[in-house]
Simulated assay, not measured.
Amino acid sequence: MPAPKVWVTGLTVGAIAAVTVLAMQADKGPHPTAAAARPSASAAAGATPAPTKSAAPAAVPDGSGTGRRVVYSLAEKRVWLVDASDASRRTFTVWPGTVNPDPGTYTVSSRNEATTGSDGVQIENIIYFAAKSGISIAFSNAVDGSSPPPAAGKQTGGVRMRAADGAALWTFGETGTTVVVVK
């Protein structure tokens, strides 16, 4: 009668072979894809446009400068994080407030980890870069992940984004970072 070690070794080799065959068959089959995250009902109420991830990343706008910078397109409601080699490292759509900065070149002037926005929403990753008509304009994300429409009758300069995008911008947009706003 074979020794128990031989049985264990034989069973182990057989199991590894079976798993390898199954893995090869699975690799040839269909692969699931992650569905795009949808905002919650509270996030979607009145929010326009809803940030989405496209299959092909949007190209950095022409005329947005060179070098390491944040590019914000007013028309596309989109932000790009561009590295020193002019390659886009991340792009995402945003929900602008009621007051937009004029097209031009700005600098991140200050940052604040968290506060309450002028619309009463708890926000984080606040990056100030401009002011217009006495309204500070800053990128931020709502702590609860919502994308509320601007408060009725209030002038707001918050440019909101999803939490993951806010965290990426917070890491990228240090004080002194160039922000280019294009039409």
Rank of each mutant, 00 (worst) to 15 (best):
A15E: 11
A15Q: 05
I16K: 10
I16H: 08
A17N: 06
V19K: 09
V19N: 11
T20W: 10
T20F: 14
L22H: 02
L22E: 03
L22Q: 08
L22V: 10
A23T: 13
Q25G: 04
G29K: 15
G29A: 10
P30L: 15
H31L: 06
P32K: 13
T33P: 14
A34L: 15
A34N: 14
A35C: 08
A37V: 11
A37F: 15
A37R: 15
P39I: 05
S40V: 07
A41C: 09
S42F: 12
S42G: 14
S42W: 14
A44L: 12
A45W: 15
A45D: 09
A45G: 12
G46D: 06
G46C: 10
A47T: 12
A47C: 10
P49F: 15
P51Y: 13
T52L: 09
T52N: 13
K53Q: 15
K53W: 11
S54D: 14
A55T: 09
P57S: 03
A59K: 12
A59G: 08
A59E: 02
V60C: 05
P61W: 14
D62S: 15
D62Q: 07
G63A: 02
S64L: 10
G65D: 12
G65H: 13
T66F: 09
G67Y: 15
G67Q: 13
R69K: 11
V71K: 09
Y72G: 02
S73R: 04
S73A: 05
K77I: 02
K77N: 11
V79Y: 05
V79T: 05
W80A: 02
S85Q: 15
S85N: 14
S85D: 08
R89H: 06
R89L: 09
T91D: 13
T91K: 15
T91P: 00
F92N: 08
T93H: 14
V94I: 03
W95M: 05
T98C: 12
T98W: 02
V99Y: 03
N100L: 07
P101N: 08
P101A: 07
P103K: 09
P103L: 09
G104S: 12
T105L: 12
T105K: 03
T107I: 05
S109Y: 00
S109P: 01
S110R: 00
R111E: 01
R111G: 03
R111M: 04
E113S: 12
E113P: 04
A114I: 02
A114S: 12
T115M: 04
T115E: 11
T116Q: 07
S118P: 13
D119T: 06
V121T: 09
Q122G: 06
Q122K: 10
Q122D: 06
I126G: 04
I127G: 01
I127V: 08
Y128R: 00
Y128H: 02
Y128F: 14
F129D: 00
F129A: 01
A130I: 00
A130K: 01
A130R: 03
A131S: 01
A131I: 00
A131W: 07
A131E: 06
A131T: 10
K132H: 15
K132R: 11
S133G: 14
S133L: 00
G134R: 03
G134N: 00
G134Y: 04
I135D: 11
I135H: 02
S136V: 01
S136L: 00
S136C: 01
I137M: 04
A138W: 01
A138P: 00
F139G: 00
S140K: 03
N141V: 13
N141M: 04
A142G: 04
A142C: 03
S147K: 01
S147G: 14
P148H: 06
P148M: 00
P148T: 01
